[in-house]
């Protein structure tokens, strides 16, 4: 094979860097939405590579639900300092107080849907015209249909029927004042691609991605971490298990998987062997209805 041929990770990386630079070139006030998970950590790595020897020309924005894993928050702070990026944190807790939002009730009361309010307020506060996110099309079927440059109106809403055609590698970022574009540079990556890239680039991750002992509650086949944010009832089965996280979201709506995988190589082996999808195995929030993600996106969600 010719030396002028890129392997698949090289092609994916180049495409993502191209998208990052289009954002920097087309928008006045972009931001990178940082969740603390492996996908947004990968985005930060790609942004570093896209703009070296310069700094990342946009801030990292974290919408903090108050239900995060401490390990993910610590990692976030260290990473932002290490890469010398500006970090903006806005708390869902504050939006709840300010706007008197009603919180979900129940055993695993989640702030997942309330995040949208804080996100939209933050976009308005800083007048962000583009928000880069780590969503991938293989995650979920509504996401499989979303553009790389996904236009949201001033209410943050996604209209799947009015999406702009997206041709070749030409990205149309023209918008009206008040609207914004959500940009997904790793749209074409799969979960396994992300892990293979993390291995190749030696990207650091929060410790909860690797096997550790944790007190968990078994609920409908899913393992939920014991935390002050969930309600424990009589008869709940609590045990300490060796687990790791396949995705990192809120403690209330992200489930752990039983695993002894302590290295990236072990994790990749596990993912190749698994027969359950990433979101299916670990996301409690997707189980509401078959259009749960589509509906949340229409309302301004990531």
């Amino acid at each position: 094979m010719s030396k002028y041929h890129l392997d698949y990770l090289g092609q994916l990386e180049s495409e993502s860097i191209h998208i990052m630079r289009e954002v920097a070139g087309q928008f006045e006030r972009p931001a990178l939405l940082f969740s603390g998970g492996k996908d947004s950590i990968t985005l930060v790595h790609l942004a570093l590579k896209a703009f070296r020897p310069g700094k990342i020309p946009f801030p990292l924005v974290h919408i903090d639900t108050g239900h995060n894993f401490q390990e993910a928050l610590d990692f976030r702070d260290e990473l932002a300092e290490h890469v010398d990026a500006k970090l903006i944190v806005r708390k869902v807790e504050d939006t709840i107080k300010l706007k008197r939002l009603t919180e979900q009730k129940g055993k695993f009361a989640s702030r997942n849907q309330l995040q949208t309010y804080t996100l939209l307020d933050t976009i308005e506060e800083f007048e962000f015209d583009a928000c880069i996110g780590g969503a991938r099309r293989d995650e979920e079927k509504a996401r499989a249909k979303e553009r790389i440059f996904s236009v949201r109106d001033e209410f943050g809403q996604w209209d799947p029927k009015l999406q702009r055609p997206e041709l070749w590698n030409t990205y149309n970022g023209k918008i009206h004042k008040g609207a914004n574009v959500r940009v997904f540079p790793i749209s074409n990556w799969t979960e396994l691609d992300v892990w293979n890239y993390i291995r190749r680039e030696k990207i650091g991750l929060p410790s909860i991605y690797f096997a550790h002992d944790r007190e968990v509650l078994e609920h409908e086949g899913q393992l939920v971490a014991i935390s002050p944010f969930i309600r424990l009832d009589d008869g709940d089965k609590i045990s300490t298990k060796k687990v790791r996280y396949r995705t990192v979201g809120d403690m209330t709506c992200t489930a752990a998987v039983e695993s002894g995988a302590s290295t990236i190589d072990d994790i990749i082996k596990e993912i190749i062997a698994t027969r359950t999808s990433e979101r299916g195995e670990t996301r409690i929030d997707d189980r509401v209805s078959e259009a749960a993600m589509e509906d949340r996106k229409k309302n301004g969600y990531f």
């Binding site: 293989d138 499989a144 074409n188």
Partner: peptide
């Protein structure tokens, strides 16, 4: 109605 993107890989190609 719209274009959907799907992904799979074999040891030879993505």
């Amino acid at each position: 109605i719209d274009v959907a993107y799907k992904y799979f890989s074999t040891p030879k190609r993505k």
